[in-house]
Nucleic acid binder design. Structure first.
Lengths: 150, 150
DNA sequence: GATGATTATTAGCCTATGCTAACTTTTTGC
DNA sequence: GCAAAAAGTTAGCATAGGCTAATAATCATC
């Protein structure tokens, strides 16, 4: 060991710092796609239930105003997740549908897991909404296995 | 039941829509404080470990640049969570310390819970970082109880 | 104690995500 | 088929949270 073992001079410290940074960077990345995922998931659901996804219904369910929805839909369209025509409903692209399916899958697993822990449905739904964007594949597998055997 | 039971015209539907919106609003609220919580938690840790929290160390651990840290610290100071003097280290206010403690507590419980599920430490740390901001008190209690009896 | 390296700040830019106000288009109901 | 209501859009504003480039202050070393 070298003579400078004061504030984080060791290799191990440096590695710890870097791995921590990577964790935060990962979380920030997840955060960036959260809104898109929430919208796409909701759009898929509305199409399934009502045959179409109207901005006004999206706004009501997301708890935001219509202009906010319009702007977000613009980003989703730019990113190739939806298609839309002016003053018309929204449709998912192939890519959007795939993302929606994946999100729904994650959401379901997290929700079932929380319920199987004994959480009340209301709280489970709320927490699942926030948690689903932050569970790794590995964690998701554990959640699924746990809910299964309960 | 009234004659219009087509697209969400029932009371039950309306309640479901509203409760969904509330869930999303809650998630957005949680998102707004995530960064502040991460910083405060990290600052507390740095002070504990190194005796002081320097912007350069915060930046390294958060995986962001120094100007980003400066701007965020400005917000934390504005919000009464930290105090600082120009070109000096950062200190937590009473309020900041309380928040840090609460965050650390939540983080610990989520982390221990994930570990007790059998997750590897690396992934557990990453996921805990993202999940900790989105667990209700109720869920946290269940997590704690589960980790306890494992 | 001067000077080079490190650290911190400032200025200025960008994107995402929210809002309100004002306007346009579509839908609905007589 | 027209007028009012509902839905959608646009413009413009704000905040958070990133960045780079440039500047300023502090620290460490000789």
């Amino acid at each position: 060991m070298t003579d400078d073992e004061n504030l984080e001079s060791t290799e191990a410290e440096a590695r710890a710092v870097e791995s921590r940074a990577e964790a935060f960077i990962g979380v920030r990345e997840a955060r960036r796609s959260e809104v898109a995922e929430d919208y796409v998931e909701l759009i898929a659901e509305l199409i399934h239930e009502n045959g179409e996804a109207r901005p006004v219904d999206i706004a009501a369910r997301m708890g935001v105003t219509a202009p906010t929805v319009a702007k977000t839909l613009g980003r989703l369209a730019r990113d190739g997740l939806i298609t839309r025509a002016k003053y018309r409903s929204v449709f998912l692209t192939e890519e959007g549908r795939a993302l929606a399916k994946e999100c729904r899958h994650r959401h379901e697993i997290v929700l079932r897991f929380l319920l199987s822990l004994g959480l009340d449905p209301e709280t489970a739904e709320r927490d699942a909404e926030g948690i689903e964007h932050h569970v790794s594949e590995r964690t998701l597998a554990l959640f699924a296995a746990f809910a299964q055997r309960s």
